[in-house]
Design a protein around this nucleic acid. Structure first.
Lengths: 362, 362
DNA sequence: CTGAAAGCGCTTACAG
DNA sequence: CTGAAAGCGCTTACAG
């Protein structure tokens, strides 16, 4: 290796000069004694004489040559940048990061790199991010949509960008989408509580502006209706945007003259609030709880926490499949993938209503 | 808006033709009746006659023009792509995704977009990702290093890429780095157990190839030494790479003829294994437990789980500051930022050793 | 301030 | 198979 900075040990103690120019194909061509075209062909694996190819690769190695992917994209016919953008509510929430990983596992096989960012559920910020990504000419975009109008994406899609929505359907635009069976999952969770004897089941829900929150509430109502249990708004609390709000709501329900014997929590943070309300009231062994979304340590609680689990990594993989199939030229009708949930019974769902005895088949 | 596909409602029911060419500066120039240079200047906010600028922006709006950032980078003097790459062990682990978010919060203010990917602690895969990122000409790279040699990054750094290591120091290259005070944090956690009377404290550790694991073990030994407690390898288990392995190791310790009265778990998954071992043995109210890294629901356990918490978002922000200061031209000596931990006492650390009574100052 | 021209690093018809 | 030339979308000296 050549020593660029004049030091002999190769380990300069400061960061060193920032001037070193990156070698280009032209440099490789000069060193290998061939034309630029030949270097390009050798690098891209097109038919080239074996001798010349060897000289190119040797020169390339010697110089530490790395092809500039952006320049290549600019000139190439297919125009693919081999990068995709992911827009989440928040990259740091467990759902997002698991979707991200699922996506990455598929993308990696294609040499596609992944941008990821957070909209914080702010439509303006989502749009800003999308435009920044389009400026970088991403081949596709995965969006957990915030806001009421995604028509602004239409133009880019017409320019060939593959767009897939995840977790919530888009509005004002048709596109491929991957969803969880929110209504079905919730109905299964609530049905589980009904099966062990509960008739008065409280519901704690997320912000009703969210599609998922509404679908889950529907599942709750459907499960009640299927068992001829009347829907009672008195035990339903919505718009719980934080675990603190959820905790307060759960406490209210427990203090009702006719309190629920079981609770269904419609989301992660809501579940955490409910757990802490039950513990605060010393009611965790008396009032059953089932939550939507699994949590770390859920099985270490006493009693264990029964949940309706999604598979976010599978969502990410499914979104990737839809996206890449479009990039591969699939031009069929719009597709909607709905992934099933899984009920993980860990105990509290098993708490029967007070006064009942061994109710198995209600 | 012009209807490109011939439908009149603007909402085609299929994805539609993928042929629409994206408008370029040339198109904008033609529509505005000015030269390409003027469009470029107007778009970039350089001095341009107000009238012409207005015409350019109007034409730009009409066409839905979006500057091609890659083409711009290619020609610009500074060569900045306004994108940075993050390489984690796994984007989906909570530590990584919180670092990611912290980084994003700083990067966003600069209009910088973030690639993120997983190495799975495989050095080859890390290097592959790094090269893919360099091909996209990222301005900087944040790496949670896997593997024993990061000399391969030197060349890119000499070409001007800012590189910052996170969580673990790099080997075979000097670079800016952000670490957590692993030894100090562990010593504080173990010291907490000693302060409430424990003398026989078991240690459950991650794979010793990891720098963090070794630093934490050192902290454990230092805390023991500071209180003249002999280090007993019989109650130390290392190489616990999963919660299952940790659970098994904790069970072994509990079955020792002279079992520990308290455990320190050196990492997330290790803590989860320890929690489940204690519960399995019905020992959770008898044997104290402190873990490194906070966990969701840790305060909902019975008893609550005391932890030594890191601040991964702060790590991400600190890494971003280091990285951007280099890009801004800072050319000083290498910097190492060590972030403090925080002891969150929630109960189990408070369990005194059996037979002792109200030991406050041991 | 404005425009014509050169050129960033690459790919790809086009002749040989 | 090989090379000279044109050009992807943009920025930036260079003259005016």
């Amino acid at each position: 290796m050549e020593t660029l900075s004049g030091s002999t040990d190769g380990t300069p103690s400061t960061v060193g000069p920032r001037v070193a120019r990156r070698p280009t194909m032209k440099d490789v061509a000069a060193l290998a004694g061939v034309s630029l075209s030949t270097v390009s062909r050798a690098v891209n694996g097109t038919a080239v004489d074996a001798d010349l190819a060897a000289r190119v690769h040797e020169a390339s190695r010697l110089l530490g040559y790395r092809r500039d992917h952006a320049a290549s994209t600019l000139r190439r016919a297919d125009r693919h940048s081999a990068s995709v953008g992911l827009i989440f509510d928040d990259v740091s929430n467990p759902f997002s990061s698991a979707v991200h990983r699922g996506f990455e596992d598929v993308a990696r096989g294609r040499g596609v790199l992944t941008f990821a960012g957070s909209s914080d559920q702010d439509p303006e910020r989502e749009q800003e991010m999308a435009h920044a990504l389009f400026s970088r000419r991403v081949d596709g975009l995965i969006v957990v949509p915030a806001g009421p109008d995604h028509g602004y994406l239409r133009r880019e899609r017409e320019a060939g960008v593959a767009i897939v929505f995840v977790d919530r359907p888009p509005s004002a635009i048709d596109a491929d989408v991957v969803l969880t069976d929110n209504a079905g999952g919730t109905a299964a969770g609530v049905g589980h509580l009904i099966a062990i004897g509960h008739r008065r089941i409280g519901y704690l829900g997320d912000r009703s502006a969210l599609h998922t929150a509404m679908a889950r509430l529907e599942g709750y109502r459907a499960a009640l209706a299927a068992h001829a249990i009347a829907y009672d708004p008195a035990v339903v609390r919505l718009e719980l945007g934080s675990s603190a709000a959820s905790r307060a709501a759960a406490e209210e329900l427990l203090e009702l003259p006719d309190p629920p014997t079981a609770l269904f929590a419609g989301q992660n943070l809501v579940t955490i609030g409910a757990v802490s309300a039950l513990r605060g009231a010393g009611a965790q062994h008396r009032v059953a709880l089932v939550g939507f979304d699994d949590l770390i340590l859920a099985d270490a609680l006493e009693p264990g926490l029964t949940v309706v689990a999604q598979d976010p990594a599978a969502i990410g993989r499914a979104a990737a499949e839809l996206l890449f199939s479009r990039l591969d030229g699939h031009d069929g009708a719009l597709r909607q993938v709905v992934l099933p949930t899984r009920l993980i019974a860990r105990g509290p769902g098993e708490i029967p209503p007070a006064g009942s005895s061994s109710v198995r088949a209600a």
